[in-house]
Computed example of a mutant assay.
Amino acid sequence: MNTATDTASPLEVLSFRLGNEEYGLSIQKVQELRGYDTVTHIANAPDFIKGVVNLRGTIVPIVDMRIRFNLGAPTYDQFTVVVILNIGGRVIGMVVDSVSDVITLAPEQIRPAPDMQGAMESACIVGIGTIDSRMLILIDIDKLMASPEMGLVAEEAF
C-alpha cells in the first residue's frame, strides 16, 4: 500500500470495522468476501487463529482481527465477514465485524500515519484516509500478516 508521499494515483481500499474503528486495506489484496462459518480448530494455535476452512480445495487459516488487536470478545452475527486475502501467493481469511464498502481515496485524502512509539502494530499503519468526517486507518496487510506475531506469510513472499 502506498503512503501519502509516494501516491500519485487514487488508492482503492476495502473499508471494514473492528470495534469502534474503521480500517482500510488495498482492494488488490482481497480475493472475496464470505459470511462467518464454522472453522476446524487447530490445537495449540494462537488465540487469534480461529482455525481453518476448506475453500474450494484450499485449506485457509482464519484470523480473528478483533482478538489479534485485543478489542474485546468477538461476537459472530449476520454482519460478521471473513475477508479472503491473497498475500504473497498465500490465501488467508480475516474475520472483521463488518465490511462497509470500496472507497477510492485521492492522494490528498491520505495523511501520514502518526508516530506512535510502542503501538503494537504501528509499523503496519501506513496512513489515515479521510472521507468527509470519516477516518480510515490504512493498514499494510502484507506487513501485518508477515509480522513475527502473526507469522502467516514469509516476508520474502512479496
Rank of each mutant, 00 (worst) to 15 (best):
R90V: 10
F48C: 05
D140G: 03
K143Q: 12
K29E: 11
I67H: 01
V81E: 01
N44Q: 13
I141A: 08
F48H: 11
A106N: 14
L33C: 13
V60N: 05
M65P: 00
L25A: 03
P112M: 09
G51C: 11
E156Q: 15
M116V: 13
T3W: 04
I139F: 03
V99F: 09
F48E: 02
Y36E: 02
P112N: 14
D132S: 15
I125D: 02
C124D: 07
T104A: 11
M65R: 01
M116N: 09
L33K: 14
R68G: 00
D37V: 15
E12S: 09
G89C: 05
V63Q: 02
P61T: 07
D115V: 15
Q117C: 03
I92D: 03
T3G: 15
S98T: 07
S26G: 15
D37Y: 14
I27E: 03
G118E: 06
S133G: 09
D6L: 14
R134T: 10
P10I: 02
T58V: 13
F69G: 01
L18E: 00
A123I: 10
R34E: 13
V53S: 03
R111Q: 14
E108P: 00
V39W: 03
E22S: 11
S26M: 08
I137W: 01
L105V: 06
N54T: 06
R34A: 13
N70T: 01
V81S: 08
M116P: 02
G151N: 05
E155M: 06
D101G: 07
F79G: 02
V53I: 15
L152I: 09
D97A: 03
L152D: 02
A106D: 12
M135E: 11
M65D: 00
P107I: 07
C124Y: 05
A4E: 11
A43M: 08
L11M: 12
G51A: 11
Y23N: 00
E32A: 14
V13L: 12
G51P: 11
M116T: 14
I67V: 10
S147D: 10
L144F: 15
S26Y: 00
P112G: 10
L152H: 05
G93Y: 06
D47S: 09
G24F: 02
R111P: 00
Y36I: 04
L14N: 12
T80A: 08
R56L: 03
V99Q: 10
Q78F: 10
V91G: 09
L152N: 06
S133F: 11
N86C: 07
Q78H: 12
T7H: 12
M1T: 13
S26P: 06
A119C: 06
E149V: 12
M135V: 08
L14D: 10
M65N: 00
I84G: 01
S15Q: 10
L152P: 04
L105E: 09
M1G: 15
K50W: 02
